[in-house]
Write a protein that binds this DNA or RNA. Structure first.
Lengths: 239, 239
DNA sequence: CGGAATGTTGAGACTAGTCAACCATAGTGG
DNA sequence: CCACTATGGTTGACTAGTCTCAACATTCCG
């Protein structure tokens, strides 16, 4: 797909890297060739990282191949600060560059204060949310953005299969959150309603009729079944 | 600007809150009316915050008034995690909502492990960078994005007045970082060159001729002197 | 020198923004 | 109870900026 991400075929995961290891920071220092992958999407989160020399990038792909570079990391920058069990971002060396590895176990052992570990967890979780947010803002159409927003709200509000969302914020807030104009937000709400994805009993009340279709739109999975061409059967939603 | 001293009438002390809600902090709980500000851009960063009830938003404005909502915070979310001495984001209540206040001093005292405090600092700094990044992606034209990118690189590379940047990454990386197509990046480089803002001795080498003009463009300060109408005097740049 | 990868330029299409008018709702006061 | 108003939301027409596709240029490297 992208030539950039093809430099790393056949490379071992970080745990198996046979490269020169220099002790530092209670950890290990490893060098990477240009384009080489440090961790990839889906890898288990075993370590934090800190750049020693050179340039790294954090990238992410939508299911249909659109690419977003989330950050460039220069010496001194931390990365790999992801709160969940697997990495969402792929971290790669841009040029020949060096990284210090900090095993998470060791960090956890040293962080025995409850408030501070909650703070740290909060910061990394905010970062993870922001990755999603930026991915969406950088690479999505208006429909995808609003679908993403509604799907996120539904997920946060608990797991009903056809949730009803009470929107606390007004259209302007949604627009500024999604990087759209208020008119486009309004038009897209109407579009979703006409298409039978949602119901709008009041302006601030959204009943999600087809969470699956919204979620597919939100995931920017354009290779999935073509949602925008599906017809809506009124009798199905009227129930 | 600070609303912290108001609206705590009749609220339980944080120790009296149900344990399931939020872990116990030695802090204060304060309620806010709809639209009320918790902290504003430029306020000194004295506290961290954690949402107890209701909805908050973090917003930011460009100098010329474009608005970006950076996040919505729901109960349990931390906010105010900014690394510098003053807040960049304004945090406001969306509806009537409640916040726990965590004095930073107290948190610092409890975080006496060097590695962990560096990690935490790294996480909050990553968040701050991401605020800028998202602000840019959500609300800027192609010219503003590239100007922002070059200005950031120049700032990172040290403070020469007319810096020369060696770009380690290729056009595709820049495009995916800025949320643009590679063609638009290329066109905008050419535009900057034609306008005398930069020189491009090689494709990967950028000599910044007018850092001030680039920085104004980057700040999205459209009320400033109209850069895009200024003419370039060739003799000035030929030197 | 040739080929591949990277970068630039051009033409046309299309999405979302802007401006303007209109509609809905809730609150207010006579 | 009904105008009246303010705010928030919707819709339409037009425009502008960016993407896409395509061709071409440049650089790098064997």
């Amino acid at each position: 797909m992208y030539a950039l991400s093809h430099h790393n075929e056949g490379l071992p995961a970080i745990g198996a890297l046979p490269v020169t290891c220099v002790p530092c920071f209670n950890g290990t220092v490893i060098s990477f060739a240009s384009g080489e992958e440090v961790v990839g999407t889906g890898d288990p989160t075993k370590n934090y990282f800190r750049v020693i020399r050179g340039l790294f990038r954090a990238v992410n792909f939508t299911p249909d191949g659109r690419r977003q570079v989330f950050a460039f990391y220069t010496p001194g920058d931390f990365c790999g600060l992801e709160p969940d069990g697997t990495h969402q971002l792929t971290i790669e060396a841009v040029d020949c560059a060096t990284m210090a590895i900090l095993p998470r176990d060791a960090c956890r052992l040293r962080m025995n204060d409850e408030v501070n570990s909650a703070l740290f967890e909060g910061a990394t979780r905010a970062l993870a949310l922001t990755i999603d947010h930026m991915m969406m803002i950088g690479r999505s159409s208006a429909e995808e953005r609003l679908a993403w927003f509604l799907t996120m709200l539904a997920a946060r509000s608990g797991g009903s299969r056809a949730p009803v969302l009470q929107l606390a914020m007004q259209r302007q807030d949604i627009a500024d959150y999604l990087g759209l104009s208020i008119e486009t937000v309004s038009r897209t709400f109407t579009l979703f309603k006409d298409r039978g994805l949602i119901n709008l009993p009041h302006k601030r009340l959204v009943q999600i009729l087809r969470p699956d279709a919204l979620a597919r739109l939100a995931a920017a999975d354009r290779d999935a079944s073509p949602i925008h061409l599906e017809l809506w059967e009124p009798e199905a939603a009227a129930a």
